[in-house]
Design a protein around this nucleic acid. Structure first.
Lengths: 105, 105
DNA sequence: TTGATATTTCCATATTATTGGAAATATGGA
DNA sequence: TCCATATTTCCAATAATATGGAAATATCAA
């Protein structure tokens, strides 16, 4: 992963509504959630929601598919994994005790 | 971890100079690096560097200790781990195949 | 002491991100 | 067709962040 992509992904997550959306999608699995469901949960106007979904999409952290009138968003897990690997790359200068073992969910 | 803290940590990382600093410190281990070393590597003026180090400190992603004239910064690994856990919490709706196993460094 | 080096604080300026109303687009159902 | 629902785009106002010069603070070394 390139630094520009990492900054893009982190910027996308660095906002309360978007982080909430992302975590809902992470937990929703591949089934995903319709934009409207996300907007209703967050209580934000459609234009604002759409702006945030666009940011997450641009960062490749979420993807969408349309189903009739609905647009279903879901998490892009490989991209999330790439970001985490980028942050922890060559961690800890060989001191493994510093590095908590990650749960593999 | 609370959402405000997560947004704070992600905002701190969502900037190219700060992300570079953080990754250098992650790789440096507990020995850490002096502010001046970071500034020289990045090629940014001291005031700008100091601003970014303060942001990372506020987010608890780095800590510092002073050693004479020098201030040595180092990564706060437990906070990094908390952030990653927060992002991946209850991931994937039970579909473990979606979730890449994390290397435990 | 005094002068050099390391880092931070202050502050004004510049840049970038967020918000949401209104209008546009798209689909489904009567 | 025509209307209701779902979502996006446009755009302008507002808010939050980043930048770096100059001055302040702190330590070291001679």
């Amino acid at each position: 992963m390139e630094i520009k992509d990492a900054v893009g992904a982190l910027s996308a997550l660095a906002q309360e509504s978007r982080l909430t959306i992302f975590r809902m999608l992470v937990q929703a699995g591949d089934a995903g959630l319709a934009a409207g469901v996300l907007g209703e949960t967050l209580g934000i106007p459609p234009a604002t929601l759409s702006f945030h979904l666009k940011e997450l999409t641009r960062a490749k952290l979420v993807k969408s598919r349309s189903a009739g009138r609905y647009v279903i968003y879901s998490a892009n897990y490989p991209e999330m994994d790439k970001l985490i690997d980028y942050l922890t790359e060559n961690c800890c200068a060989g001191d493994a005790t510093q590095c908590a073992p990650r749960k593999t969910c």
